[in-house]
Design a protein around this nucleic acid. Structure first.
Lengths: 336, 336
DNA sequence: ACCTAGTCTGGGATCGCTTCCAGTTTCGTG
DNA sequence: CACGAAACTGGAAGCGATCCCAGACTAGGT
């Protein structure tokens, strides 16, 4: 019964077949008012018979809305994206965007080429809004985003400034709680393997560590910087062991580095948690799989993505939502 | 609330400013022939002065090309996407797409809503092409993709049929090699924790295991099915240990499940690899971090994504590339 | 000086949809 | 029964590019 036409049917043809004008057909499709039930029905029938699907591009041109939001992940090279963290953000963002009927474009601003394309996207309004993540200090993307007259929601704050719209996790609080936990269990010589200090997350987590130690009247160690990868955690631990042989606790700025720490400690013959307690941050799969399973600061990553997307949708719809800080929670397993 | 003070300059304005017609300006922009050097220069200057950026939507409408490719990940629920596997595919696909100046749209066809949106995308030609992954047996997406008159490249073959264009990994060969390795090291009672048997990867890897055992004159065990997650690997191992207390080797269909196996074995007091050897598949980070580090079948995941994207670009450009099977390679660490 | 071949140019049609707006119906009310 | 408001309708004007094509202009050959 349904005729398979060569070219895609257009709204014009639908209208003709339904015996109405294009405008009425359009209104019927977008169930806008001012369409009599009879014609609405006729249009629907014609749509069904013709197998009509509206052309998103034409619609976009007319409405000046692309129907898509971009998730931009900044970084020096694409491998940053291999962190399972982003996958979870995407899951959250994707479902929220789906609810708003927006598509998700993914932009890895890793290469120069990638950054250039993001800039073009921003300037050409190639999306209705942008979710911006993993900015480092002095990242040119921050400025571009500012200039672009486009809704931008930040995932995690950029270093130093607080943008108008962002969703972040309570990094300071989480790190503080973890460190306090270590202290409460009698650890007194606790070091921090912190993430890159050119990211706000790296800094904030170190601050949380420092605050906790100072609060307990203990001396914080200077930051031992890693880059959020497992090898960097292993390397940092080696350095720490050499510098402070009497260490009895390590708090890492993420689970990957904590896993690296476990590896080095195992190789060095230090028992975890008997000799040294280790705490991670993120609560990704690796924390559960590690041996021993990691005590870690859980952060609601999927919720982060979801709330970012929701906030973006709100901004797109003309609202002015307030920034959001998501809570963290310490998950105790056996590494501390 | 809508802010629309300074409208973006249009090609028309650029042309006027450069003292040429729209057509010439357009040609100059797309550096097409039939534009004198002088006017080309004038257009470029005008573009610079006005800060003009072409409107991608308008261009898309006129050229009937969206400038985007969609990566569709099928699954029962969004958590499937949490597998770091996909992140790596994305990295590969993203860079290749970047080279072709295509944007990447990410579609998680997990919910009903998600699937419906993918169908719409397919039917409305909302993208220039589609990368389709993680199809299960009887997945409706396969049919939709077939019907849609749109270039579709499969990542991994769907169960049973071989589509026209796909990139896959040598699952059978990889699993066979891993199993043969176990046998060559003197293991004789080897079990397979296989992935979902409604996926081709799950089946193929089991076939590789079976082929190797049969080839060595040993009896393959029936498939112990998992779902590619760590817990399912742990559970499957528990079952195997109960059914076959004399097991001396396990080959898991991916690293996650192998990690689960390690966890159960540790809990059961079996030494790895002394008592039981374990081999994984994928060679993700978890394989390196696991204790003991996993011997596993490395598959070139980023290359998979890259080649899929390249193939898609070829198809979009009117070519008819031949399907590709990427090689795997056994990486020996200490678990076997 | 004239004609031809070749290069440039720019007006206008087109892509498929939304939306404004003026004109037409419909309908309730006094 | 008349009248004004409200509900509908459909023609037409965009949205901002691309691209065809007829005509102008240039240059070279005779």
């Amino acid at each position: 019964m349904t005729v398979a036409p060569r070219r895609q049917p257009t709204l014009e043809e639908v209208a003709e077949r339904a015996g109405v004008s294009r405008s009425v057909a359009s209104r019927a499709l977008n169930n806008a008012p001012h369409v009599s039930p009879a014609k609405r029905e006729a249009v629907e029938r014609a749509v069904r018979q013709l197998g009509y699907v509206p052309n998103p591009t034409a619609r976009a041109l007319a409405t000046r809305q692309t129907g898509a939001a971009a998730l931009v992940v900044s970084g020096e090279d694409p491998s940053i994206f291999a962190d399972p963290f982003f996958a979870q953000v995407i899951v959250g963002a994707s479902t929220a965007l789906e609810d708003a009927d927006l598509h998700l474009m993914l932009c890895l601003a890793a290469s120069d080429r990638g950054r250039k394309r993001v800039e073009e996207l921003l300037r050409s309004k190639g999306a209705d809004g942008v979710l911006l993540m993993a900015l480092r200090e002095g990242d040119p993307l921050a400025g571009m985003a500012e200039e672009a007259e486009m809704p931008v929601v930040f995932g995690g704050r950029p270093v130093g400034v607080a943008p108008r719209w962002y969703v972040d996790v309570d990094n300071v609080g989480g790190a503080r709680e973890a460190t306090e936990y270590l202290i409460s269990r009698g650890r007194t010589r606790v070091a921090a393997i912190c993430g890159r200090l050119d990211t706000e997350a790296g800094r904030a987590r170190y601050r949380g560590y420092r605050d906790a130690l100072l609060g307990a009247g203990l001396d914080p160690l200077p930051p031992q910087e890693g880059d959020f990868t497992e090898p960097s955690g292993a390397a940092a631990t080696a350095v720490l062991l050499k510098q402070h042989p009497d260490l009895d606790g390590i708090i890492a700025a993420n689970d990957n580095m904590a896993a690296g720490a476990l590896r080095t400690l195992r190789a060095a013959g230090r028992a975890v948690p008997a000799d040294i307690a280790v705490v991670g941050f993120d609560d990704l799969t690796v924390a559960q799989v590690a041996d021993p399973p990691l005590t870690t600061v859980h952060q609601p990553i999927t919720a982060l993505g979801r709330e970012m997307a929701r906030m973006l949708v709100a901004v797109i719809n003309g609202h002015d939502p307030t920034p959001l800080i998501l809570p963290t929670r310490l998950v105790t397993r056996s590494s501390a």
